[in-house]
Design a protein around this nucleic acid. Structure first.
Lengths: 253, 253
DNA sequence: ATGGGTGTTGCACGTTTCGCAACAGCCCAG
DNA sequence: CTGGGCTGTTGCGAAACGTGCAACACCCAT
């Protein structure tokens, strides 16, 4: 690791606490004033640090711009994909990844049993929003007002006898999902298909995506599928960790 | 200025464009792979850079945390926020707060129409500096020499037919804004969006921030939006007063 | 197996950075 | 006006630090 860079970067969290002048920075870094000056100058040239009118230093505008740009380029799908593949290899079942957008829930990735098929279209198919396990997870995380408003606007088609029947039942189900942190769809969409799903959360704890494992009755019973829940949740948590930058990746120290 | 730090910091905007692997980083920096590796490691230790499971690097969570922390420490923002909210309640439109820093103008707060939810999403994004009403106000306050120098350096993208076309037009517009003490953007950035803005001044009279109200054509015409000007200016003046310590906090009756 | 593609490590050279000390402004007090 | 204290700034030599090289380790395809 580079000492100079290390010192320079140590300035950033220090300034995040509030503005500081050259002397304070030098003291807290444990270096000579002239050294601190040069480091600050370099940070300044890159816009990470800004000098306000009283000559004290602040964190600069470029930092916001960088964070902003990085946010937009964060591709959940890209991060999640290898995890989906691994989950598929471990279970043999179909794995889905879905996001919530504009009152719809869309699949954005899918790995099918044995042969990994990547869906390249960014805009996937809308899912059955009232019954799909992933939809429940994504909607359960909305503020209550939005949840209610949305629930009222939806249609509740009876795909099967176990489909969610109306807004009241749906809201009750969302409440349950919200509390337990996972969701299922047991024959609610197609009679013979069961799903178990877990949420992917961003750094702020909000649900940004949901992942599910689906299998037909003829292959595994609902009970057997439920035994996969811990694995599904762990995988979702791994993705969450990676997505929010909490590095769960092994470092070959 | 420090060469090592300079190189290390150059990695950040590079990664903001999207994830990259070691070789790509080294190439674009023009250094040996081993050098890039050590720089990345240092950045990694500080959490500014994160290594995803495919071993590629991307910007890390700490960057977001820093940006957010820095933003929350901006005192103008804290003081202005309740005023923005009130203005939003009174007008129903989107309200922005922006500051000027290092030849960029960026939004530091935003209250969206009617929804009490505070969106961090677009905050931090640099604004279209040649057309945005807030940008004109902030730049119009610069000393003439700086204004000229800046105007020459800028690009003048034609977002719409009403966008500022070149440096001459821009300087003329700034002169006007400077005299009248407020600014507009009538379809200069997006055809159907109009803005009206007013400056926030510090104790010394210099413009420290600018506030705008934006609304699409389909909701209110430009003329109707302009009738809000007195209210916008009064609000900006209130913020100015509070920021410069002249006025005790006014009750929001 | 074998080759090209990655990422990683140890090392010797020399460029870069460090701390020092002296300088330059600024503000306040005498 | 003058002087002292405070902050930020600059030139310089010494040496520490970072650099590029080359060799290695590893993974995946062919």
């Amino acid at each position: 690791m580079s000492q100079t860079v290390d010192r320079a970067l140590s300035i950033l969290p220090l300034l995040a606490e509030g503005p500081a002048d050259l002397g304070q920075v030098a003291d807290r870094l444990g270096v000579h004033k002239s050294t601190a000056l040069r480091l600050l100058r370099t940070l300044h040239e890159h816009g990470l640090v800004y000098r306000q009118s009283d000559q004290r230093y602040r964190l600069g505008a470029r930092l916001f711009a960088l964070a902003q740009e990085a946010m937009e380029n964060l591709d959940i799908r890209e991060i999640a994909h290898p995890h989906l593949v691994r989950l598929n290899e471990q279970t043999g079942h179909t794995v889905h990844l879905a996001v919530h957008e504009e009152n719809e829930v869309l699949y954005i990735d899918k790995v099918e049993s044995r042969y990994p098929v990547r869906m390249y279209s960014r805009i996937g198919k809308p899912v059955a929003i009232t019954v799909a396990a992933v939809a429940k997870l994504l909607l359960a995380d909305l503020p209550e007002a939005e949840r209610r408003a949305l629930a009222d606007k939806l249609d509740y088609p009876l795909y099967t006898a176990r489909s969610t029947a109306n807004a009241t039942a749906f809201l009750r189900e969302l409440e349950l999902v919200r509390e337990q942190g996972w969701a299922t769809d047991l024959g609610g969409h197609e009679e013979s298909i069961n799903c178990v799903a877990a949420p992917v959360r961003g750094a702020d704890g909000r649900v940004v995506a949901a992942m599910s494992v689906s299998a037909p009755n003829v292959v595994v019973t609902a009970e057997e599928l439920l035994t996969l829940l811990p694995l599904v949740r762990r995988t979702a948590d791994d993705i969450s960790g990676e997505y929010s930058g909490r590095t769960p990746v092994r470092d070959p120290a």
